[in-house]
């Protein structure tokens, strides 16, 4: 047991999960799910996973709630309740309780909560903790492992984000021959919201860049910074209208930038292959970057890779929001 408050938070999380599935109104259910994500974020801070908590606060609580709202705004929030299909629910409940019981049987083999000598904490993770700073000069161990030791994993995760954006874009894309509705492109006429968001957006973007660049020394990195940058663009699209944000970053340029982000990551890893090292072995960059040894080359390469991740994730979040909210037509927002 780590902290008494975490037990309390876990029970609260369970209650919120039940409530979010129980409510018979989709919008309220989504909002409760956002609160659930924020509580999860508190739990992860308590367990020492600050980077995960940061990502969850930006992605799970912020952007995914916006995605749900963007879909529900244009469709319906009502749920038809049919009391007749209770038997199917009871049957699946029995099925799930049975599976849960089987999983509970395996509980005795798992290490107890917070055990430093558990098997998961001793082998490779011990090596990472003890030698990451010596080998890369990056004090944030999460960034070091994310962008260097397990860079292959991260590269394909970035590709998955890009492919998901591409899939959403292609599923929702209309061929442009449908007549546009005249009344749809209406600017938001609320002065207070426009002025406040015009004041806040530069600071949000500055903070996003800070998170990307300062990921070596504090919680943050490409994923979190990219999500914050994308969220700032989403804020512009909500406070103004979608035409305005399309002038800032058009859809074609968004797709191009997403490709460029993946290419930065993969290309930066491909260069060592031509220098006689293996793929994503950044220490070979010492021959190309002036004035860096092998250790600092790894440290600088992480920054380059994180920038690639940030560009792809930013364009991903922006593209998913724009596609979902306008049903692929890119002409009207919330």
């Amino acid at each position: 047991m780590l902290l008494g408050i975490e037990t309390l938070l876990l029970i609260l999380v369970l209650i919120l999960a039940v409530v979010s599935l129980w409510i018979r109104d989709l919008m309220s259910s989504v909002v409760v799910f956002g609160a659930y994500s924020f509580l999860m974020c508190l739990i992860w801070t308590g367990m020492g996973a600050v980077d995960v908590a940061f990502t969850e606060a930006a992605v799970g609580a912020g952007v995914s709630t916006v995605f749900f709202v963007a879909v529900l705004f244009n469709t319906t929030r009502r749920i038809q309740f049919n009391p007749l299909d209770l038997s199917a629910k009871i049957f699946s409940a029995i099925l799930c309780i049975g599976t849960g019981y089987l999983l509970m049987l395996g509980l005795s083999d798992l290490p107890s909560w917070g055990d430093p000598q558990a098997l998961v904490n001793t082998n490779v993770s011990k090596y990472y903790i003890e030698s990451a700073y010596k080998q890369t000069k990056v004090p944030n161990l999460v960034t070091a492992v994310l962008a260097d030791y397990r860079a292959f994993d991260t590269m394909f995760e970035t590709c998955v984000v890009f492919i998901a954006v591409l899939g959403i874009f292609m599923l929702l894309k209309k061929d442009g021959r449908e007549p546009l509705k005249e009344t749809s492109a209406k600017a938001n006429d609320n002065l207070i919201i426009r002025v406040a968001s015009r004041f806040m957006v530069p600071f949000i973007q500055l903070f996003g860049l800070y998170v990307v660049a300062h990921g070596h020394y504090s919680p943050g990195g490409g994923f979190q910074g990219g999500v914050i940058l994308g969220a700032s663009l989403i804020l512009v699209a909500m406070a103004f209208n979608i035409e305005f944000v399309k002038q800032l970053l058009s859809i074609k340029r968004m797709l191009l930038l997403a490709v460029i982000g993946v290419i930065i990551f993969a290309g930066w890893g491909l260069v060592p292959v031509f220098l006689g090292q293996s793929f994503l072995d950044y220490s070979a960059w010492a021959a190309l970057l002036p004035g860096t040894g092998e250790i600092m080359a790894r440290s600088h390469s992480m920054l380059a890779v994180e920038i690639g991740v940030a560009i792809t994730v930013m364009c991903g979040m922006y593209g998913i929001y724009m596609s979902l909210v306008s049903d692929g037509r890119f002409d009207k927002g919330l």
Partner: peptide
Amino acid sequence: NFIFIGSPTATHA
């Protein structure tokens, strides 16, 4: 500072 600007605006919206 951020909350001082953001929270009343959200309430207004």
